[in-house]
Design a protein around this nucleic acid. Sequence first.
DNA 1: CGTCCACAGGAATGACGGGCGG
DNA 2: CCGCCCGTCATTCCTGTGGACG
Length: 421
Amino acid sequence: MKISFVVCHLGAYALAIDKLENLFEKFMEGSPVFLSREILRHDFIPDELPHREAEIIRFGAVLAPSLKGTRCSNLFIYGKSGTGKTAVAKYVLDRIARKGRTTSKKVRVCYVNCRKAGTEYRTLSSMCSAVGVKVPFTGLATAEVLSRFKRGLENTGSTFIAALDEIDALVRGYGDGIMYKLTRINEELRSSRLTIMGISNDLYFKDLLGARVRSSLSEEEMVFKPYTAEQIRDILSQRVQLAFRCGSLPEPSLNLVAALAAAEHGDARRALDLLRVSGEIAERGNASVVYEEHIREAQRKIEHDRVVEVLDTLPLHSKILLCALYVREGESKRGITTGDLYETYHGCCGKLGVDALTQRRVSGLLSELDMLGVANAKIANLGRYGRTKRIQVTAPRQTLSKIFAEDPRLTELAASPSVRD
DNA sequence: CGTCCACAGGAATGACGGGCGG
DNA sequence: CCGCCCGTCATTCCTGTGGACG
């Protein structure tokens, strides 16, 4: 009995392993489309960054004094997303840190994405870990973390360059308090130096800063312009040569990707994503060449995945709100108003047996959805009939209905055509 | 031309869970 | 273990506002 049981199981395993074996074999043979997928990831930094040579040189010139142990100017970089700010910053930081290792003057660098870090506290704590100071992930006063950072930095005795990416997100939420403290930190350091490199997507970010912070933070300034379709094409073609098999991405397909990306404000990151996903879709369809249909399909998939990812992390009430919006949307071409939406949302909460949040809070959640690009809310003045927002869904309806269908709590709500009052 | 709608969105405040130093 | 401080989420109260209506 026992033996046959085992044999039987082994048989099942053997089968599974065979299938896996096939999969691995296929994988080892290599993809019919890609040479290396890694190269298309947007966090991959190539040896050359086309159309950013001038910026790299300028960057280097500003930061070079750090190699001699002198403080260099703080640096500020603006530019929309996908204009190569992050890539250039990381590239130069990496190069300067490597150069620093060959000299007596150590240069330490650190890169923090403030939006991902989320709070002042976590931003500072990643700066701490870059100077070898461990801090608990919560519990301390922010000022305490700052002073530990200061102490840690002083102990290293080196020049420190901190790149704070998406710094606008931080200042918007917490004010320029720590920025002020960070810019003043050099006055208290004896053996070390701190240089701050701020990176922002928002061109009007400076307005958020107080005058003192503004002037010391942007001793040097740089603006990254969006890439043109031509430039995106160059960037893509450089990566295509490294990442794709010869001939698997023909000229017209490359041009289409570049054109689609250029239409999206010259965002190179999106272009690379599109390229990679197109290749994957072609590959899955057992094609060895990427054609237009694959690219169009990829565009849909990217949008779908983005929405799924965003919604996944959303709290329950945001989902209910979106669900309510989904149900009511289309009633009027120009979108429904806040009051109507709240009413529906309230009804939905009732059906679910959940306490509804206040209108104020819902308004906040709505702006969140707007910022995430799932919904769109525009202020509309109806004169006599008050001031409100016109709200529409921007995510593909198909994607939303699929997501709602997966969540048992929301299925019923989304299915019923009218959930008024 | 002033009113007044129906909200927007800022500020203050509180409840809660979690880590710290003592 | 306690008191303290933190970040997060939510509520309450509030002031601000563009323009159709009377």
